[in-house]
Design a protein around this nucleic acid. Structure first.
Lengths: 271, 271
DNA sequence: TCTTGACTCTCCTGTTGCTGGAAGGTGTAT
DNA sequence: ATACACCTTCCAGCAACAGGAGAGTCAAGA
């Protein structure tokens, strides 16, 4: 029988941790002095402690370990739990690897361009969205103005009000300055009858890389630039039309309001 | 100006998190209604939030992010912090990969042998240790008894008492049943003059894989077996003599006490 | 105008696996 | 007797929020 301090030295597990394991019911000392409260361990309990540590290494929580130690665990159960830990560990390896890639791409960016981009790209999941839209080819993006007029008139006439922020889909692959295949969209809650020009569709939920452009449209190219580089550097592939979401739409037509806030969203997949 | 719920929907960051960021000083709403306490955000703050999220992805804590946002961070500083994160991320990738390996080796073990080993192997760091010892070649391990007598007599004559648990070093590479090069050791605190047979040395601190054998010595082969397999399966290399640590030494000479507790320690390196 | 129902606020607790420290009792060697 | 190392319990804290209670706010519909 040895006291907690010696047990701790032998096992290289802190006294605090041992007391915690006692409290959690993972490893009770074989006896506790009735008067002093001193915990007394047997050497043979080091084997139990080793089992606890080994399970911890495998990624089990202390609570799970407690159950594993109590229940004479069947092999099948054990196998199942290990499989679970396996996928989790896999997942975390992936995450950390991606994090590492991102860090390295940032470092490269600093080395090469010697500055920090004003655009930060983040990945998020957006929900499916139902919307009414007009699609057409315009000479340059700013010329989508009339399409907006057309769409809004149509909605107003049918007393339908958009249920969220409007956006434009760019159907061309890659960036294109002229003859752009654009689709201007207003999100919808209820129903709407279509016409030859106005269609109702649903965009599926997606994982998108996005960045925020603060300022007038004339400079939005920088944002496209930044997000494009980021996708490249971090190994993502574009898998659908990009969206320009007009969070705080321009007040004066579509051009030069400096308070405009626009979000760029690119549906992506890991390359 | 939008309320927290809408800001949350646009950013896909929970309301709780936004309030927390406010409290931490990371992202204050541009205004707070004096009467209702409602937080009001600007669309343009989505860019700040994106920066926060991007830094979080890189592995920074919220506190660090706070400082990064406040101090107009110099590029050099940023580079330094990124380098730090980089090594950390590297470290974690390694850890998770090793965890994954261990899980997979356990799974293989279950598939193949259809049972769970009674021996759990854990890795720990042991400190340097000074000791007195006798080294000799014995026909079989159990025949080290006389060496123990020799060592203990020597210590007793010089009124030196061991300062910890005794152990044996096995200097042979691999497992050997006969003509074993063993060294029986008693840890020491103070000084001791050497003789031709008795030497004083210091084992350096080391990383060891260890397992606990509960029971008589005759069955200790199983423990060696288990630890050997484990090292193999998890990609470790033995880099020094193994130690047999007699935690709860046998009472009857050295053979058959069932309450004996012995720890096997193998100094290792990742292969 | 009243009533819903959806939002929002603050404040408190809980999460995980411990670490650190305070205040006080033990054990042993000098 | 007196150190000094140990041991005990209890409380606080970490990181980044989530969940919920209890109460106030807002806009739309009856």
């Amino acid at each position: 029988m040895i006291r907690i301090g010696d047990f701790s030295k032998l096992s290289r597990v802190s006294v605090k941790a041992l007391r915690y394991y006692d409290e959690m019911g993972l490893l009770k000392p074989v006896s506790v002095d009735r008067f002093t409260g001193y915990r007394l361990y047997e050497y043979s309990q080091l084997a139990v402690l080793n089992r606890i540590l080994a399970l911890k290494e495998l990624g089990f929580s202390l609570e799970e370990i407690g159950r594993l130690l109590d229940d004479g665990l069947s092999l099948e159960q054990m196998r199942g739990m290990l499989k679970l830990r396996q996928t989790e560990a896999h997942q975390r390896v992936r995450e950390e690897t991606e994090r590492l890639e991102r860090i390295e791409s940032r470092l490269r960016q600093i080395e090469q361009e010697n500055n920090m981009s004003k655009y930060d790209v983040v990945i998020k999941n957006v929900e499916a969205i139902k919307f009414a839209s007009v699609r057409d080819v315009v000479q340059t993006p700013p010329e989508q103005g009339p399409l907006w007029g057309e769409l809004e008139d149509y909605l107003a006439m049918r007393h339908v009000r958009p249920s969220g922020v409007c956006f434009t889909l760019y159907h061309d692959e890659g960036f294109k300055e002229r003859d752009c295949d654009v689709e201007v969209c207003e999100p919808l809650d209820g129903d709407l009858t279509e016409s030859t020009r106005i269609k109702v569709q649903t965009l599926p939920a997606a994982t998108v890389a996005c960045t925020i452009h603060n300022g007038p449209f004339v400079t939005i190219g920088e944002a496209y630039n930044a997000i494009g580089k980021w996708l490249d550097a971090n190994g993502y592939r574009i898998v659908g039309p990009s969206r320009e979401v007009y969070l705080n739409p321009a007040k004066d037509g579509i051009q030069n309001d400096p308070n405009t806030v626009t979000e760029l969203q690119f549906p992506i997949e890991k390359a």
